[in-house]
Computed example of a mutant assay.
Amino acid sequence: MSLYFAYVMIGLAIAMPVGAITVEMTKQGLKNGFMHGWAVGLGGMTIDLALIIALYLGVAQFLSLSYIQLPLWLIGAAFLFVLAFDSIKNADKDIALAGEKANKSFLSTYRNGLLVAVSPGNLVFWISVFGAVLADSYSGKGTHQFLIVALGILSGILLHDIGLLTIVSLSRKVMNRTMIKWTSIIAGVLLFGFGCYFIYEFIHDLKAFI
């Protein structure tokens, strides 16, 4: 149990820094409410869970190869640029104030979470976190420990998402359409910045690879 709670804290700590997922969650939470913000978080956690399963099946070495990660930087950047453009272009659209029905579907915001979470940074994180337990993953004890670590980290991320979106939902009650519009524009700029960072990492890794 102590191992579980230790990794819950690690999951919380990892989710705390502002990243692309946090930005998209906040934007959707303000524009369409708690459930739509959480849909983004669930999309991100779906990718996390898929990576956990992939790591358990032994693909960590494959994912850590530089020529595998290189194109993923570009793919991640492309997704972020698309979301950034959409966030800025449609900043004044699909805004549902507190008490109003959201115009955007739950599935579309969930898809955004999936797109944002597809990044080499996410892959590297899961490879590094689970590296210590992968060696014993096929023994009974190792498998049990692996599952506890995975559940702990996912629980920590989930607690962070719920806490963040609770704050966002409370803030949304006192915000008008103009304030939410500018929040969406700022979110778009931040997502564009993350996309530029991915391009920088791609160029940096490409030079090292060559």
Rank of each mutant, 00 (worst) to 15 (best):
7 Y>G: 02
188 G>M: 06
100 E>Y: 00
56 Y>P: 03
13 A>F: 07
30 L>S: 01
56 Y>G: 09
100 E>G: 01
23 V>L: 10
130 F>C: 08
106 F>P: 04
115 L>E: 05
197 Y>Q: 07
89 K>I: 03
127 I>A: 10
129 V>K: 04
113 G>C: 11
4 Y>W: 09
61 Q>D: 13
69 Q>M: 13
93 K>E: 07
105 S>Q: 05
20 A>T: 15
202 F>H: 10
162 I>M: 12
194 F>V: 13
206 L>A: 11
16 M>N: 05
187 A>L: 07
101 K>M: 02
150 A>Q: 12
120 P>F: 05
110 Y>V: 13
128 S>D: 06
121 G>T: 15
164 L>M: 14
68 I>H: 05
160 H>E: 11
177 R>K: 13
45 M>K: 11
1 M>I: 04
88 I>Q: 03
96 A>W: 01
74 L>V: 15
187 A>E: 06
133 V>Q: 03
85 F>K: 11
139 S>Q: 13
19 G>A: 06
126 W>H: 07
85 F>N: 10
109 T>P: 08
95 I>R: 00
2 S>C: 00
8 V>P: 06
121 G>F: 10
136 D>Q: 05
185 I>P: 02
67 Y>L: 05
97 L>N: 01
25 M>E: 10
150 A>M: 07
142 G>T: 02
196 C>D: 06
58 G>P: 12
16 M>H: 04
113 G>R: 08
54 A>C: 11
22 T>R: 01
129 V>R: 09
183 T>C: 02
12 L>E: 10
55 L>N: 15
35 M>L: 10
10 I>V: 15
31 K>N: 02
15 A>F: 06
52 I>C: 04
146 F>N: 13
29 G>N: 11
66 S>W: 04
134 L>I: 13
103 N>V: 00
194 F>L: 13
184 S>V: 02
182 W>Y: 15
94 D>P: 00
146 F>G: 01
27 K>G: 02
88 I>S: 02
55 L>A: 08
97 L>P: 00
133 V>K: 01
140 G>L: 14
26 T>C: 06
81 F>Y: 10
45 M>D: 07
173 K>A: 09
204 H>R: 10
141 K>N: 14
116 V>I: 15
105 S>N: 12
42 L>V: 15
20 A>C: 10
157 I>S: 08
57 L>T: 15
116 V>D: 14
53 I>Q: 03
26 T>I: 12
110 Y>N: 14
61 Q>E: 15
16 M>R: 03
43 G>N: 08
85 F>M: 04
101 K>L: 01
10 I>F: 12
